[in-house]
């Protein structure tokens, strides 16, 4: 059974069709990269997977459950938004502990420090207020929050946006490690290089439709770029 399954997904905002029949599946231990330009429907797809929005048509299931209807899914699904916004009056550790507590997970200070180190956040930043953090540092806290959930499914919306090359590379390594541990990951991005480096399978999403699926092992980043640009002209 696929960990993430989307069949014939359609969503319309007023007169604008955001999704026009998306089909995709992500297996356990697989990273699926949803590649598309702004407005292609990547965020809408993720929001439907999170249960924040309802589909107009089609079916969506995560671990065989329907998002938005089965509340037990929240512990199995971790989400990392494009821009991880934290509480500026809390430090890194406190933010991690707070968001974890909201998910009913108790993270001790030691565990929190280990998680942040695992996510590449330097120890000297752990107890600084997050109002002083860069976007990359906040992103790392976001990943740590997701890791603390020990979720089966990770949904990432433009996770490498705004990250420096080193941080992006660290993110890729981390996601690969998670996948190696059997986690299913769906990441939406318009960063062709990063998606090629990170994902096992890539779906090119354009105007609410997946036009092509590629196995990243079979193509180079420049191949993907050529294919992508070709489809964008359609």
């Amino acid at each position: 059974m696929s960990a993430i399954s989307i069949k014939g997904l359609k969503k319309r905002y007023a007169s604008h069709p955001a999704l026009q029949g998306v089909d995709l599946a992500v297996q356990p231990g697989e990273i699926y990269g949803l590649l598309g330009q702004n407005g292609a429907g990547k965020t809408t797809t993720i929001q439907i997977l999170l249960g924040f929005q309802s589909p107009d048509e089609g079916t969506v299931s995560l671990l065989g459950k329907t998002p938005g209807k089965d509340r037990s899914l929240t512990k199995d699904v971790a989400y990392i938004p494009e821009n991880v916004s934290l509480y500026p009056y809390l430090n890194g550790i406190e933010n991690l502990q707070y968001f974890s507590r909201l998910a009913n997970i108790h993270v001790t200070k030691n565990e929190a420090e280990n998680l942040l180190i695992k996510c590449g956040l330097a120890a000297n930043a752990h107890f600084r207020l997050t109002s002083t953090y860069s976007k990359g540092m906040r992103q790392k806290i976001g990943i740590a929050i997701a890791l603390a959930k020990s979720a089966q499914i990770f949904l990432l919306d433009e996770p490498s946006s705004g990250l420096d090359p080193l941080a992006s590379n660290e993110l890729t390594q981390l996601l690969r490690e998670l996948a190696a541990n059997g986690k299913s990951i769906l990441m939406a991005s318009h960063d062709i290089f990063r998606i090629r480096e990170t994902a096992d399978k890539i779906g090119i999403l354009h105007r609410g439709k997946i036009l092509k699926e590629l196995h990243s092992a079979d193509v180079s980043a420049s191949d993907i770029e050529s294919i992508y640009l070709e489809y964008m002209k359609m």
């Binding site: 999170l50 989400y79 509480y87």
Partner: peptide
């Protein structure tokens, strides 16, 4: 505005 709401909701709130 700051986008924390999606993170809060995704934590099961």
């Amino acid at each position: 505005e700051q986008g924390r709401i999606t993170l809060l909701l995704s934590q099961g709130l």
